[in-house]
């Protein structure tokens, strides 16, 4: 394919592939760099995905906002009386929790098909695989963005407003995006090769929903709560939820969130370096 973003060397080959000296790391890094530099393509594809998914629907992606809103109000009223919490305190918590969890859940589920769904393109043109991974990440980020007005509505309705600690939201979101990218890369590859992984991931995510403090507040665990940072879902979710509704994030939670992200990144990159050349045969 004609590729204007690649520098044109005057001398030497543009495309070199030697099975005896695979240069795997250089190829993987080049893939990442080119894919990130060409972010406009995955962004355009993600927009198209959303438009096509909700084609002809009146509310479009705002159906998700609406269903989340109904969930938040319903669960907010029920669980606040179950847990004997004040609705005014519980509602902002459950609103942010549900939105963040929906995003995590969707991203992980989509991650399983990040590469297989691009099968047609992968077999026809040598695009960086990073493009397909970013497409999945951007799509879910865009869908989540539709639910953000809900957070403001709940804050207005309950009269709670976060203080300056809300600025911590920015590093929190960056961490979530990094996680989403590496999980999509790793699961995309693993699920392309082993088709049984996707159903396993799906049922695991259901378990994770109940095991993580999404609906219940961490305080309800009492003493046991100090083990919570061992749950990666909790740590990563908390970096976004904390600044919004809990007045900040404990340093330990930050530490574990960064550690998990680093771990996922290392594993994903190691896989990518080793198996990048095989992906076209897997999908």
């Amino acid at each position: 394919m004609l590729d204007a973003t690649l520098p044109r060397p005057d001398q030497g080959p543009l495309y070199l592939c030697d099975a005896a000296r695979p240069r795997r790391r250089a190829a993987a890094l080049e893939d990442l760099a080119t894919g990130l530099r060409r972010w406009r393509l995955p962004a355009a594809l993600a927009r198209l995905d959303i438009r096509n998914r909700y084609r002809g629907s009146v509310l479009g992606p705002f159906w998700l906002t609406l269903s989340t809103a109904v969930m938040v109000v319903g669960l907010g009223i029920l669980y606040s009386s179950l847990f004997k919490l004040e609705v005014r305190n519980y509602l902002p918590f459950v609103a942010v929790s549900l939105i963040v969890w929906t995003m995590i859940n969707q991203t992980v589920t989509d991650a399983c098909t990040s590469l297989t769904s691009a099968e047609g393109i992968i077999r026809q043109m040598p695009l960086p695989f990073t493009v397909h991974v970013l497409r999945s990440v951007f799509r879910n980020a865009l869908i989540t963005a539709h639910s953000l007005p809900l957070v403001f509505l709940v804050f207005l309705a309950t009269g709670t407003m976060p203080g300056w600690e809300v600025l911590l939201l920015i590093p929190g979101l960056l961490l979530v995006v990094a996680n989403a990218f590496f999980v999509s890369l790793l699961l995309g590859m693993v699920c392309a090769r082993f088709r049984d992984i996707a159903p396993i991931v799906n049922s695991f995510m259901q378990l994770a929903f109940y095991m993580s403090p999404v609906l219940w507040k961490p305080e309800l665990l009492g003493d046991t709560a100090r083990w919570l940072p061992l749950n990666p879902f909790y740590s990563v979710m908390e970096t976004v939820r904390g600044p919004l509704v809990e007045g900040g994030v404990a340093p330990l939670v930050w530490l574990s969130a960064v550690l998990y992200t680093g771990l996922v990144a290392v594993v994903a990159l190691a896989f990518f370096v080793r198996f990048r050349g095989r992906i076209a045969f897997w999908v």
Partner: peptide, 28 residues
């Protein structure tokens, strides 16, 4: 075109590659 990586041997392609293999790929 660079879609499949060879399992053995060496391939060198110099020059800007244009491929007309399956034109409908990537069409929405």
């Amino acid at each position: 075109a660079g879609v499949y990586e060879p399992v053995a041997g060496r391939l060198e392609v110099a020059g800007l590659i244009g491929s007309l293999i399956d034109p409908s790929a990537g069409m929405d």
